Amino acid sequence: MSTSSSSFVSPLDPGIDELWERRADITPDDADARKAVVAAVDAIDAGEARVAQVAADGSVVVDERAKRAILLSFKVLPMVESAAGGFQYHDRMPLKTRFDGVRVVPGAIVRWGAHIAPGAVLMPSYTNIGGYVDAGTLVDTWATVGSCAQVGRNVHLSGGVGLGGVLEPPNAVPVVVEDDAFIGSRCMVVEGARVRRGAKLGAGAILTSSTHVFDANTGEEYARGEIPERAVAVGSSKIKSFPGGEFAMPCILVLRVLAEGEIHDKLALNDVLREHGVSA
């Protein structure tokens, strides 16, 4: 995956880069540094900047300055006590307060510095700093959007889904789940793995940056750590020989790739997965 673009210019204050260079000396007593960092993270919180996004050429472009601002916030913010109802907290990061047009069910937790777009629905779940959840997306019960994970429009993160956080180093590509994707219950997508537009991932699958992805009909191998666009995929295993014997190694199996413009409704998706003994 590409992590940079010659045409990309961060919307954040370039002063963040200067603060990053002298980060070892920054403390919460540095009022000017704190002001600059808080302004930058506020912009990420509001969706005016984001840690990463998919460019027109399909590459993932990382805004290193945004990541640096998040990392610097741990340096410039003091530990403080806070409360939400009867729950007490002691942390450097406050909870998010901007939820315009978002349905937030009791039990949902979002840290400041995560952007939740209008029209999203948060069941009891957790979204970490730097996360981005776009319009129309459902983050279902006990799902986790890790630090800096980027989730597109009209995505369904089913119950217990775990999107891993990728905060350091600043140029590392985070987990990206693109528009119209469906992630089945208890799936894990970590280490900067990517689920492309319209893909459907069956329950319990584990996708890392090094996971092998195979076509069930041809045996063709796709790019590691990526579910292809419009693919219907499930977790599987492939036998591999080692000095100590043969062992089944986890992989992802693409059962079908939808035609351009073809959309699976939930019932049709269940039918495809049920044929292979997998639930959504």
Rank of each mutant, 00 (worst) to 15 (best):
P94N: 08
G107T: 09
I116D: 06
Q150H: 07
V175S: 08
D91V: 04
P94T: 08
T97D: 13
G152A: 03
P174D: 07
M79G: 00
W142P: 01
W112Q: 12
A120V: 01
V161H: 08
T137E: 11
D100H: 11
T144P: 03
G165C: 14
V104N: 03
E81L: 11
E178F: 01
L157F: 07
G130K: 07
I109Y: 11
S125E: 13
T97Y: 00
H156S: 11
V133Y: 10
T127Q: 09
Y89P: 04
S125P: 10
G152P: 06
R111P: 03
L157M: 09
A84T: 11
V166Y: 10
D134C: 06
P94R: 05
A83M: 12
R98S: 14
S158L: 11
W112N: 03
A120F: 02
V121E: 09
R153N: 12
L157D: 05
R92T: 02
V175T: 10
G164H: 01
A117Q: 01
A135P: 00
G113T: 02
I116W: 01
S147M: 13
L72P: 04
G160C: 11
A143H: 00
M79P: 01
Q150E: 12
P169E: 05
P174E: 05
G85L: 13
G160W: 10
P94D: 08
L72F: 01
V145G: 08
P106T: 04
M79W: 14
V176Y: 09
A117C: 01
A120E: 04
A117I: 06
V177L: 09
F87K: 14
P124L: 08
L138H: 07
R153S: 15
D91L: 02
G85K: 11
V121N: 04
L71S: 06
I129M: 14
V161A: 04
N154C: 09
A83I: 03
V76W: 13
R103C: 05
G119A: 02
A143G: 04
L71T: 09
V175G: 07
P78A: 15
L122W: 08
D134I: 04
A84E: 12
P78W: 05
S82P: 02
V104T: 00
L77Q: 15
N171E: 15
F99Y: 12
A84Y: 11
L71F: 05
Y126N: 13
V102C: 04
A108C: 08
V76F: 12
N154Q: 08
P106L: 02
A172E: 13
V155G: 07
V177G: 04
N128D: 14
M93I: 14
G159L: 00
N128A: 12
H156C: 00
G119Y: 05
Q88T: 14
Y132D: 12
G119D: 02
P169M: 05
V133T: 09
V173I: 15
G130M: 00
V139N: 07
L138C: 03
T144A: 10
V110N: 05
V145Q: 04
S158A: 15
G165S: 14
A117F: 02
Y132P: 02
V176C: 09
K75C: 12
L163A: 06
D140H: 01
G160M: 10
P124T: 08
E168T: 15
G146N: 10
V76R: 06
T144K: 07
R111S: 10
N128C: 03
I116P: 00
A149V: 04
A108I: 11
V110C: 03
G107Q: 14
K75V: 09
V176T: 12
V151G: 03
